[in-house]
C-alpha cells in the first residue's frame, strides 16, 4: 500500500498496481466509507483498478483546521483511516447485467484479423467472449467507459499500435480487458462487435449505464435484432436541449 500526492489538490492510495478483484473490492469499500462522511473540501473520489484518488480544494480542507498541517497531510490521514476502517469489500453486485452484442463483420471490424492471428474461428471467439461473466473494475477514459475483466486467456492481446476511430457502442478487447466505447472516439482496443444499447445518455437521470462493481454478461444478437430493437435508442444530444 502506498499513498502519494498527485500535485497539491489530489492524493492517491495505491493498493498494489494490479488488476485484482480483491484489491478493487477494497477500493470500492473505501470509496463508500469516505463518501458516507462529510469531508470538508473534498471535490471528488476517483476509483480505479487498485487505487483511489481524492480530488480536493486545499483552501477548504485547511480552512476548518486550527493546526498547521498541510491540506495534503489532512487528506492523507483520511485515506489511512479509510484503509484501516473500511471493510475488505462492498456487498457484491446482484445479477449480471445482460448486454446484447452484434458480432457481425460490419460491427466488429477486427474480429476477422483476431481470428487469423489466434487461429480461432469467429464463432469460437464470440463464444469465448460471451460465455463469461465480467466485472466492471472502473469507469474512466470517456464518460461511461467501463473497464471489465478478465477475458479468457485465449483472447489476451496487446493494444493496437495506433488508435483508430471507433463508433459509439463498440465492444473492444485488449490485455485481459474488455470494454464498451460509450461515444465515438479514437481507440486502441480491438473491436469485435457493437451493442445497440446506449451506454451514455447525458439527459438520462443516471447518464451512465454501468457502475464500478457491476457484473456484466454479453449475449450475441443478429444484425436484424440490432437494428429493430427494442433497445434504448441513440439520441441526438442536441435534441431536447434546443
Amino acid at each position: 500500500m502506498k499513498i502519494f500526492p498527485l500535485g497539491d489538490s489530489a492524493v492517491t492510495i495505491d493498493l498494489g498496481n494490479l488488476i485484482s478483484e480483491a484489491l478493487n473490492l477494497k477500493i470500492l469499500a473505501m470509496s463508500q466509507w469516505i463518501l458516507e462522511r462529510p469531508v470538508h473540501g473534498l471535490r471528488d473520489v476517483i476509483t480505479a483498478y487498485s487505487s483511489l484518488t481524492l480530488l480536493y480544494n486545499p483552501l477548504e480542507v485547511t480552512s476548518k483546521q486550527y493546526s498547521h498541517s498541510t491540506a495534503y497531510e489532512i487528506m492523507r490521514s483520511l485515506l489511512e483511516q479509510a484503509y484501516r476502517e473500511a471493510p475488505a469489500k462492498i456487498t457484491q453486485a446482484g445479477e449480471p447485467k445482460q448486454i446484447p452484442v452484434c458480432y457481425d463483420e460490419s460491427f466488429g471490424p477486427d474480429l476477422q484479423r483476431i481470428s487469423e492471428e489466434k487461429q480461432l474461428s469467429r464463432q469460437a471467439i464470440i463464444q469465448l467472449h460471451s460465455e463469461r461473466t465480467y466485472r466492471v473494475y472502473m469507469i474512466g477514459f470517456l464518460p461511461g467507459f467501463a473497464y471489465m475483466g478478465e477475458t479468457n486467456a485465449l483472447l489476451h492481446m496487446p493494444r493496437k499500435s495506433r488508435p483508430l476511430p471507433v463508433m459509439a457502442g463498440s465492444i473492444g478487447i485488449t490485455g485481459k480487458q474488455t470494454g464498451i466505447y460509450p461515444l465515438d472516439s479514437p481507440g486502441g482496443w480491438h473491436i469485435i462487435g457493437r451493442t445497440p444499447v446506449k451506454q451514455f445518455d447525458p439527459m438520462a437521470e443516471a447518464p451512465v449505464m454501468l457502475q464500478p462493481g457491476d457484473l456484466v454478461r454479453f449475449y450475441p444478437i443478429t444484425s436484424e435484432a440490432f437494428y429493430q430493437g427494442p433497445w434504448k435508442k441513440h439520441r441526438d444530444p442536441c435534441n431536447g436541449a434546443d
Binding site: L6, G7, S9, A10, T12, D14, N17, L18, I19, I46, A48, Y49, S50, S51, L52, T53, L55, M138, G140, F141, Y147
Partner: peptide
Amino acid sequence: LELVSSGVEYGT
C-alpha cells in the same frame, strides 16, 4: 513500468 490506470488531475 507497467502501470494500471489510475486517477489523474489537471496539471499532471
